[in-house]
Nucleic acid binder design. Structure first.
Lengths: 236, 236
DNA sequence: GAAATTCTTTCTGTATACATATTGTATTTT
DNA sequence: AAAATACAATATGTATACAGAAAGAATTTC
């Protein structure tokens, strides 16, 4: 483990963050202070500070006298998510087109390169993290301190929802992620061109793609089975 | 000071929060850990936890090796604020109409009673805090975990901006706050009626009233003075 | 044998001591 | 005298020890 305590805190922060986003730490799971403080060579004091930071950003829940947990996901949060996401995503994308700097475009392109690399050879977790990074950069570009907190919370659960529902299920899935990557390229171009209207439309398109994919798994097509195939309860 | 440590932490939290909202602690001012830990009979450990909570909610900024400061306000934050506020306020108001519970309506009415009481006999700080409380309740009613973080940050700086610009300057001011109170009454009625459209319109009206008042102070009418009244630099 | 209660163990919260970094001051040097 | 450097004082970050609360295990009681 690294010598510098500041680096070790950073490592803990990034580690927990990635574990939450990839569902390696599923919603509701408990975090063990003692185990983590040994793993990262930190005493409990700085470790608990990191927990509090992560709680403030929406990754963890801190319960009185009862330790830290990964923040929960429920039907309600899913509903809240679908309500809030289009508005916030649209606003962030439009602002990104207006406020982006040249350096941020490079960062966005780097994130997109990472995303495509994850598509080619990475795991589902790598893909989720790379996609998350891409959208984090758009948030930095939008550069509005009042929008960012909600946007970042949406990104957390977007990653987790995607990890839940985007499973490797053949061609449909492959086409979907490839389409998402193509949209990312369009987003970069529109942001570079400072085309606010195009960014607004791309936000909608990108959201619809994501939403459609999620809905497919939440509400799959009904099974097509002849009635007679099911034994009735009378014949028990 | 209270015996229960949990209560003392709560007291510290509320005290700093109110001081930030009322500009008693102006943006950028340093917080003294030692002084506050003595004042609230807390050791530095729990005190710093409270600081971290407040930082997560946008009240404070925590700088590495350099203590806590009240979060800054700048021309940029003011601009960010005017950009984000209408959208978020509108969304929260509409959702409040849809999701409010009966108990929350009572809480909202209580907040409004407190606001009117502050108008009659309270200080500017009391008014700002009571108004803040009213809008906090609308946020609770909206009940969307993704919108709340941004909404609450807006409320912090709305209170601080109002404290800066709404000064007791005679009849204009009195008419303005009285109008605001009347709008609050309309808001309660519309939320009670679950009238989402009316709430959306009231959000716009209420925002415009607030915005107009701020603009009056940011951009006052130019002085009307005859040219000859100004001594020219030649006559020095 | 099942339920309840008590005791033990484990974990969370707080205080304090110590290490490290920063800031202000005084001294030295040019 | 001004600037720079070294030193002292102060404040922040970390570790650890202790106190208190929750959870679990074992015993007792019905």
């Amino acid at each position: 483990m690294s010598a510098d305590p500041k680096t070790r805190k950073e490592a803990l922060y990034e580690s927990v963050k990635a574990a939450v986003l990839t569902l390696e730490l599923p919603p509701g799971s408990d975090l063990d202070e003692t185990a983590l403080s040994e793993e990262f060579s930190l005493s409990r004091t700085p470790l608990r500070e990191v927990f509090r930071n992560l709680a403030g950003e929406g990754y963890l829940d801190l319960r009185e006298n009862r330790g830290a947990r990964v923040s929960e996901m429920s039907h309600k949060t899913l509903r809240d998510f679908f309500l809030a996401a289009p508005m916030i995503y649209g606003a962030v994308m439009r602002l990104a087109a207006v406020n982006r700097t040249a350096a941020q475009i490079d960062a966005l392109q780097a994130a997109q390169d990472g995303f495509r690399a994850a598509l080619r050879s990475g795991s589902g977790k790598d893909r989720a993290l790379a996609n998350n990074r891409f959208h984090e950069v758009t948030g930095e570009m939008a550069d509005n301190i009042y929008l960012l907190p909600s946007f970042q919370r949406l990104l957390i659960d977007h990653a987790r929802i995607s990890m839940t529902f985007y499973r490797p299920l053949g061609d449909d899935m492959a086409r979907n992620v490839s389409e998402a990557a193509a949209q990312h390229d369009d987003v970069i171009a529109a942001i570079q061109a400072r085309d606010e209207a195009a960014c607004g439309q791309l936000a909608i398109d990108h959201w619809n793609l994501s939403r459609g994919q999620i809905e497919l798994f939440v509400m799959p097509a009904g099974l097509d089975m002849p009635l007679g195939a099911l034994p009735s309860s009378r014949t028990a």
